[in-house]
Amino acid sequence: MPNLDAIDRKILAALQADGRITMQELADQVGLSVSPCHRRVKLLENRGVISRYTAQVDQKALGLHVSVFISIKLTRQKEEDLTRFAKAISKWDEVLECYLMTGNRDYLLRVVATDLAAYENFLKTKLTRLDGIASIESSFALSQVKYSIALPL
Rank of each mutant, 00 (worst) to 15 (best):
V49G: 04
L116D: 05
Q24M: 13
K126V: 07
V66S: 03
T102M: 10
E120A: 15
H38Y: 15
R105I: 05
Y99T: 03
A118S: 11
L96W: 12
W92L: 02
T102I: 14
S90I: 12
K78H: 07
K126C: 04
Q144P: 01
D131C: 11
C98V: 15
V111G: 02
V95M: 01
V95L: 02
S67P: 03
Y53H: 08
L108A: 04
D58E: 11
L43R: 15
I136D: 07
M1N: 12
T128K: 09
I89M: 02
L142E: 01
L123G: 12
C37R: 08
Q56A: 12
A86Y: 03
K60T: 13
K78T: 08
V30G: 05
L64P: 09
V66D: 05
S35Q: 15
A113C: 06
S138D: 00
I7R: 04
K124H: 13
Y147K: 01
G132C: 00
E97N: 13
L123M: 15
L116G: 09
L74E: 10
D106V: 06
N3K: 15
S143T: 12
R76F: 09
V66N: 05
R40E: 04
R76V: 07
E120S: 15
D131N: 14
Y53S: 07
V57Y: 10
Q16R: 02
G19V: 08
S143M: 10
E97R: 13
K146Q: 02
H65Q: 12
E80T: 08
P36K: 03
D106H: 00
Q29F: 01
L44M: 08
G48S: 07
N3Y: 14
F85Y: 05
E137A: 14
I21D: 09
F140K: 00
L116I: 02
R84G: 06
K42H: 07
D93I: 13
D131V: 13
Q16E: 08
V41M: 07
D58G: 09
K42Y: 10
L44V: 06
A117I: 14
E79V: 11
M1A: 13
R47S: 05
S139I: 15
K91W: 14
M23A: 14
V34S: 13
G103A: 07
R76D: 03
V68P: 01
R76Y: 03
F69D: 06
S33N: 15
K124Q: 11
S139P: 06
A150R: 09
S135L: 04
